[in-house]
Design a protein around this nucleic acid. Structure first.
Lengths: 200, 200
DNA sequence: CGCGCCGTTGAGGCTCCTCAACCCGGGTGG
DNA sequence: CCACCCGGGTTGAGGAGCCTCAACGGCGCG
């Protein structure tokens, strides 16, 4: 399947026996309140399942929106579950995905609950770089980066205005630059330092 | 197995082939930064697995601490996985747990990212009441409630001081009272209203 | 040309944090 | 038996971080 950028390819509350896996491009899964407040739960990169839970649930708990043009696969829930029961390697793969998903979610919870704006944004970028690196999708210090400031805000629980100021500081301090969907890391050490916790 | 209140029964980074399931009492799973900041990821009630991910991971990603005296079971990871492959009903149960866990985590992310202190605390209590109700552990408007204000702060990403003031307001407004590990709901409708999103 | 999206910047204000002090009850040890 | 400490709750004062509102510029697109 294929979708243009900025399309919603799964809606909250919708029933569906399909499980989405991203093959190419970036997407997000998120939930939204009636008053418009939105929280992005995860950024989906090539190879990602929307969530392991979607394997077991007919009802979509989250919406999925593409950031770039995206190609993705739709598997039938029950087919996957059957394979799971029959083939141990598939189960192992599911285990690995489960662990990765949980780690990302836990890290984000810690960010939102206990970290400053600077730390949240620095760590968001570091984790994305790490995930891209593992998939050989990032070579060097210049990376394709389709997240808008509004997206960064909806991931980190900040406002777009404050994201803008913080990114402005990063640029001013020669740490990184984002422009035209391109992220340039200028000082990886400084970026790491921002993400690390300074013990008092 | 049995543990007294306020004991740590699993440590971050520790390797172990056991999976913990709470049988009686309350516990929390959390992560902590070197500088002391702590984020509680979930409150564990009777019947809860620490996390589905712990089934697949030898390494504990989170710490687990008891709030009350707790009795719990230790299963061997591989035994459970084997049962999972062999017995479809076990797989179904795992599916249900996976879904519930994801919903709780998503709700908490939304809280931390996008809700006010009042909403976070109100929703924390509402979700706990709901979970207790499903297990027939809550009868009526008076519930055993072993969370200290410090715990509420570490779940909601607030400071204990601010939790105190917010709970003080709830009490002043006749919404709820917490004292001596007992939660009294005085006005459930008002509490629900606090948790709901007012559309603008 | 006009419009909408996105990034940027300024001014002002609210939520929530920090620091600090105090109270209370329970445990502990001299 | 009492002094002491410690964990937990409560309250006040002041301040920081982040938000809100608002305006503007650049760019792509109909």
């Amino acid at each position: 399947m294929f979708s243009r950028a900025r399309r919603t390819i799964a809606f909250t509350g919708e029933a569906s026996d399909s499980v989405i896996m991203i093959c190419e491009g970036w997407a997000i899964s998120f939930i939204q309140l009636p008053d418009g407040r939105r929280q992005i739960l995860s950024v989906l990169l090539p190879g990602d399942l929307v969530s392991v839970a979607s394997l077991f649930d007919r009802r979509q708990q989250t919406a999925v929106q593409t950031l770039t043009d995206v190609s993705y696969c739709l598997y039938h829930r029950l087919d996957v579950l059957q394979k799971l029961m029959a083939e141990p390697p598939v189960m192992d793969a599911l285990g690995a995905i489960t662990i990765a998903e949980k780690q990302e979610a836990d890290a984000l919870l810690m960010d939102l609950g206990r970290r400053t704006a600077e730390e949240r944004i620095a760590l968001l970028i570091l984790r994305l770089l790490d995930r891209l690196g593992r998939r050989n999708l990032a070579r060097g210090d210049v990376v394709n980066f389709p997240l808008r400031q509004q997206h960064i805000a909806d991931i980190t629980g900040l406002t777009p205005v404050h994201v803008n100021r913080t990114l402005g500081n990063f640029r001013r301090d020669g740490i990184l630059e984002i422009s035209d969907c391109v992220l340039k890391i200028l000082d990886m050490h400084a970026l790491r330092r921002l993400g690390e916790t300074r013990c008092p």
